[in-house]
Write a protein that binds this DNA or RNA. Structure first.
Length: 816
RNA sequence: GCGCGGGUGGCGGAAUUGGUAUACGCGACGGACUUAAAAUCCGUUGGUUGAAUAAACCUUGUGGGUUCAAGUCCCACCCCGCGCACCA
């Protein structure tokens, strides 16, 4: 009785064996093999454990890592835990345990799940961002920002999540809601630590040219940074000895500026508002402040505004134009003031119509005269610039105004500086001490890390103060500079801090003298391939590029960019096409499927076979049954081969099949077309069954070659069964250290080929001909074919097209 | 509105430079095995007409075009997903 394929009896065995042999350990300074760093995003150890998204990401990463290893690379495929942050803190508060304890628990749980996947991760380099030995260096790196004036404090209006009770970065607010908990954010003015990411706006855009990111990722980052070139123009006030500066990307429309609009928060508002308008302006400003971000940013809302009663002078033509305030102008972008050109800007147009303000067309183009158009054209009503193409006038006007000192070129960014303070316990303490005499003083290196004190109460407060503020014996300290009484910073870092540099730590995970040895940083260099979620494009991915670019400027890292190539895996949806979510109860747990008896190999295959890796696609619950069946067929075939006494002859069909499949799988792996690689393996298996049915295992030598080849091609995807059968076939070394099969072009051609015969573009038949037959031979055969002859007889063949080994096409027409 | 993807059987999805559309898998149907079921194996499976595993016609979101030949190239349009969005 033959053994049945039973993943449970082979998978844990090999997982243990691989760990014991340290099969996947990356070697520092290995000069014999090219290095390859395969990075996937590290998980957050929440109580829910690994979900389908993790499964997809880590399986893909593992497939690539295993393939690279078999191709002779020194592969670093590491993993760690990103463990600071709100979910753990909330869990800890709810269960009345310390976040440290909650993290231990969750990590242990996830580690068990990880072990069951059969990943080739080098666990010797693992760490958690919450390890003091790790966050010591997160703090040290923060201080590098501080020492170079890249971290600063400012009293700013920030987005505040009233549910999580913390300030947020702009990147964490989606449609006016906190991306984690969906609570509508509020504005709060707090003294915050900020990082000058805007200093790197250009570098973050330009650096994209030197890396290999898909355009949707690069475009999204460029979009988010939002660089726009324009000019700042000063408008003198008519009745005050002052001026207002506006930002515009269309200085060519300056002659069409018929009013000015200030943001309600603009500092000039109070000064310029006339007595008659004061009451109205005040109530408008108050009403604006009462609005939520969602209300304020709704572009479909009717525009509202109030005149200040004051006027400004247009520097190009001396026109006296009214100054209004309106909440569609944002204080946080540009100068908080705009020149309104209703003829050439939709928003200004809408506003002008509503309040009956003048509209003046200054560019002539195909749009009707009374329409609003932002298209280019020729200048009109613009003095000396009349008749000039608008694109040309755009630069000329600024240059001319620059000479008069009332304008200058200016580039603005949508990107804002990164709000870096969080009013929570479970994060890295910001290593700053406040001294009455010396202000904000960095904690000296030899006193790092500033560890989190153990406390009774982790609950965040409503006041905007971190719970750490209540731990007075921790807060009160001495000034490192003068030794006088001083207080610690009580805010912590956002959970994005630890993940902004973690890849570098894998290069030297246990170093306590530096965040990593420069020689190791030099050896491993850029991450070769970084796989992660699309949702991190403008969060983690952008943040970590910023940190890295800054480190590069400080000489701390050897490469200008952290990641050579980035790929984003698609989301796996529930079977009905909706998002998997706990609240909907439609979450599919990969670990449960593995444990149900399908095994990790079938699960890995199912996920990779489902769709192209970067495509969002619904989970198909029956798919894993299909891949399990496929693996069982491979299992059975090998065992049938072993149970017979195979002959010794060779067979060219088997060899061609193997080399064709090797070519296909190899190319698919390079292009990350994993789903079609699996289908090629399935096709090969189906073919092998057909050949076996026909001739049995007579051609034993070729069979062994074909089966071993099949297992090697399968090894990156289904490592356990490949290893088991590989040993059963008599091999003495792991399949995962074997050399990836190479294909030989000379074996790819079979003796005969099928050529399709077309008449007037329609397929009318096919012929099996010797490979590489020439046109005349094939045409002759085709014409002998009864069916083809029927189509040709009595007609004139006007043209014949022949594509070798593919098709022969006759163009015929009736003879007259 | 702007940017980026995408629309192919009942479903997930295949289709080098334009060259047999629907590979592979799922599901479904029929059969074998079984007391029965599960598992497994074999066969069928885009649509219409047809007794047919004869033949013909139709079919890759819609409408045009180029070509011997179009899922693929060109023009116009419709729909879906993702990201950004009163950013001047």
């Amino acid at each position: 009785m033959m053994k049945r394929y039973d993943p449970k009896s082979i998978e844990p065995k090999w997982q243990q064996a691989w760990a014991d042999q340290e099969l996947y350990k990356a070697i520092d300074f290995d000069t014999d093999r090219p290095k390859f760093v395969m990075l996937t995003e590290f998980p957050y150890p929440s109580g829910d454990g690994l979900h389908m998204g993790h499964m997809r990401e880590y399986t893909l990463g593992d497939v690539i890592a295993r393939h690279k290893r078999m191709n002779g690379h020194n592969v670093l495929f590491p993993m760690g835990y990103d463990a600071f942050g709100l979910p753990t803190e909330n869990y800890a508060i709810k269960h009345k345990i310390a976040p440290q304890v909650a993290t231990d628990r969750n990590v242990a749980n996830i580690q068990k799940q990880f072990d069951a996947l059969g990943s080739s991760i080098d666990w010797t380099r693992s760490f958690r961002t919450t390890d003091p030995s790790y966050y010591k260096w997160t703090q040290w790196l923060f201080l590098q920002f501080f020492k170079h004036d890249m971290a600063y404090q400012a009293e700013v209006d920030i987005n505040w999540c009233p549910f999580c009770k913390t300030g947020l970065a702009n990147e964490e607010v989606v449609n006016g809601r906190h991306e984690r908990c969906d609570t509508i954010v509020e504005k709060k003015t707090l003294n915050q630590w900020m990082l000058r990411i805007t200093d790197y706006a250009d570098r973050l855009i330009d650096g994209l040219q030197t890396v290999d990111y898909p355009s949707r990722i690069a475009d999204q980052q460029i979009n988010w940074i939002g660089r726009s070139k324009g000019a700042e123009v000063d408008f003198r006030l008519d009745d005050h000895d002052d001026s207002v500066t506006v930002f515009t990307t269309r200085p060519d429309t300056l002659y069409g500026a018929t009013f000015i609009v200030l943001a309600p928060e603009h500092p000039l508002v109070e000064e310029i508002t006339t007595e008659e308008q004061r009451a109205e302006v005040h109530s408008y400003v108050k009403a604006t402040q009462a609005k939520t971000e969602i209300e304020r940013q709704d572009a479909n809302r009717d525009k509202t505004g109030v005149a200040t009663g004051s006027h400004a002078i247009n520097p190009v033509n001396g026109a006296k134009i009214p100054i209004w305030i309106a909440d569609y102008v944002l204080m946080g972008y540009g100068t908080g003031a705009i020149m309104a050109v209703p003829a050439h800007d939709e928003r200004d147009f809408e506003f002008a119509k509503k309040y009956e303000l003048p509209i003046m067309r200054v560019i002539k183009n195909e749009a009707p005269d009374d329409a609003c158009t932002h298209e280019e054209g020729r200048m009109i009503n613009s003095g000396d610039y009349d008749d000039m193409p608008s694109a040309e006038a755009r630069d000329k006007i600024v240059k001319d105004l620059e000479k008069k000192g009332v304008a200058k070129e200016k580039i603005n960014y949508r990107l804002r500086d990164w709000i870096f303070s969080r009013q929570h316990y479970w994060g890295e303490p910001i290593p700053i001490i406040y001294c009455e005499h010396h202000g904000a003083v960095p904690v000296p290196d030899d006193q790092l890390p500033v560890t989190l004190p153990e406390v009774e109460n982790y609950e965040p407060t409503d006041t905007g103060e971190s719970p750490l503020a209540a731990i007075t014996d921790w807060v009160n300290t001495t000034c490192p500079t003068c030794g006088g009484p001083a207080k610690r910073e009580t805010d912590t870092m956002p959970n994005w801090a630890g993940s902004s540099w973690y890849y570098l730590r894998y290069y030297d995970a246990h170093n306590n003298k530096a965040f990593a040895d420069p020689k190791k940083l030099e050896y491993w260099g850029e991450v070769d391939l970084y796989l992660g979620g699309m949702e991190h494009t403008t969060l983690h991915l952008l943040y970590s590029r910023f940190w890295h670019q800054f480190f590069y400027d400080q000489g701390l890292v050897p490469t200008p960019e952290p990641y050579h190539a980035r790929r984003g895996q698609g989301i796996i949806l529930a079977a009905d096409g909706s998002k998997m979510s706990k609240s909907k109860g439609n979450v599919v747990n990969p670990t449960e499927i593995i444990e149900a008896g399908y095994g990790a190999d079938a699960m890995r295959l199912a996920i990779v076979f489902l769709a192209p890796y970067d495509q969002t696609t619904p989970w198909s619950p029956e798919g894993v049954g299909g891949t399990h069946r496929f693996l069982a067929r491979v299992w059975t075939l090998v065992h049938e081969y072993l149970a017979t006494s195979p002959g010794k002859t060779e067979d060219t069909q088997l060899r061609t099949l193997l080399h064709k499949t090797t070519k296909k799988v190899t190319e698919d792996l390079h292009q990350m077309n994993f789903n079609t690689a699996i289908s090629a393996l399935m096709e090969m298996t189906n073919e092998l069954y057909k050949l076996k049915a026909k001739d049995g295992f007579a051609a034993g030598a070729s069979w062994k070659e074909a089966l071993q080849g099949l297992l090697q091609l399968l090894a990156p995807f289904a490592p356990h069964i490949a290893e088991e059968l590989w040993y059963e076939l008599g091999n003495k070394q792991s399949i995962h250290t074997s050399e990836w099969p190479i294909f030989d072009e000379t074996y790819l051609k079979s003796d005969t080929t099928t050529v399709v015969i077309q008449i007037n573009g329609k397929v009318r038949g096919q012929l099996t001909v010797p490979t590489d037959s020439d046109e005349t031979a094939v045409a002759k055969m085709a014409k002998k074919d009864d069916k083809i002859a029927e189509y040709i007889d009595g007609k004139e063949v006007v043209k014949t097209i022949y594509v070798a080994n593919k098709l022969l096409s006759f163009v015929v027409r009736d003879e007259r």
